[in-house]
């Protein structure tokens, strides 16, 4: 059996990846502390409950990323001749589904309480001998919960862009949604304090819409990867120009008449096939080996491109 060569990540990218792994550990423990903080301040508030459930769910992505990172290091073997890179996509899909389900839950929950029209009650709390409205305690906890995702989200986005790491990129979006959620909840609680009974549930509803939308986008992205969709930029979400670039490079070779390339994403790496129409068959085997070398060194993300000579490219690519 032919087992794929082990993909070797460039050293400078590995450095970024190691930073990402560290960052996601920090992220995980920050989120864990937020789950604890919100739990103790939760009380009766709908928006607070929504924020708490979302915070629990956000523990998933960093964990999934860390596990996937551990597994994907394994070299291709007899059981998995293509390697373990796709484990990233599985973790990503799992997270996206959970996120989507939570979004729907929040939507149903907050809509129900809006229709029920039962005003939210937030009582008193005593802190070191001072009795104050528990809403202030909740707001303090929410503000605390907004700061780490605000900072971490920015760091994640920057690093993930370097490493072409979609799971962390999506997790950065979750961080962003996270602090926005907290801000929305603060506004909801301020509204309740003003006697706007619906403010709390309305804030939860907006959060629900946001989470659902995030979940939907992530599911689409993950399913796209599993369906061997053409590579998309994790920055812009638009198709990559890379296949066209490879075609140009191949056609620039003397012996190549025409070339056509298709690529797919396997987690963090790309693989695919290049169909070439040789101008002449002389030294074809060594030419192909050279061409493969050229193509695979064009971009650090490429793990394997198989070069297939064809007689008539117009028919092969139809």
């Amino acid at each position: 059996m032919n087992i794929r060569r082990t993909y070797r990540i460039p050293e400078n990218r590995q450095v970024v990846l190691n930073k990402l792994i560290k960052l996601q550990w920090v992220n995980f423990f920050f989120r864990l502390s937020i789950v604890a903080a919100i739990y103790f301040a939760m009380g009766n508030s709908q928006a607070m409950k929504a924020a708490w459930l979302e915070d629990i769910l956000t523990l998933g992505p960093p964990l999934a990323f860390l596990i996937a990172m551990h597994i994907q290091k394994r070299p291709p073997d007899k059981s998995y001749p293509y390697g373990y890179h796709r484990v990233n996509v599985i973790a990503f899909l799992f997270t996206a589904c959970a996120l989507f389900a939570l979004g729907l839950f929040l939507l149903v929950d907050s809509t129900t309480s809006l229709l029920e029209a039962k005003p939210t009650s937030i009582g008193a709390e005593t802190f070191y001998g001072h009795t104050l409205w528990a809403g202030w305690v909740m707001i303090a906890a929410l503000v605390y919960s907004a700061i780490p995702p605000f900072i971490l989200g920015r760091m994640q986005e920057k690093l993930a862009r370097h490493a072409h790491e979609k799971t962390v990129m999506a997790d950065a979006k979750i961080s962003k949604a996270d602090w926005m959620t907290a801000v929305a909840s603060v506004i909801g609680i301020l509204g309740v304090g003003m006697g706007l009974w619906w403010a709390d549930a309305a804030a939860a509803l907006i959060i629900g819409l946001d989470v659902t939308r995030d979940g939907y986008t992530n599911i689409r992205e993950a399913v796209g990867d599993l369906m061997d969709r053409r590579p998309h930029s994790s920055e812009t979400g638009k198709p990559e120009e890379l296949p066209a670039l490879l075609e140009q490079q191949l056609m620039a070779l003397d012996w190549v008449e025409r070339a056509s390339v298709r690529l797919r994403e396997e987690g963090n790496v790309l693989s695919g096939e290049a169909f070439v129409e040789p101008a002449c068959d002389k030294d074809l085997t060594s030419n192909i080996v050279q061409a493969q070398h050229l193509v695979e060194n064009t971009d650090w993300r490429i793990s394997e491109v198989v070069i297939m000579p064809v007689t008539d490219l117009t028919r092969a690519s139809d």
Partner: peptide
Amino acid sequence: LVVILTLALLHLGGCRYPNDV
């Protein structure tokens, strides 16, 4: 949310806080 926040700021000036429905 912007509307609620604006109302909150207008409200905080004179009224009792937290207030009743």
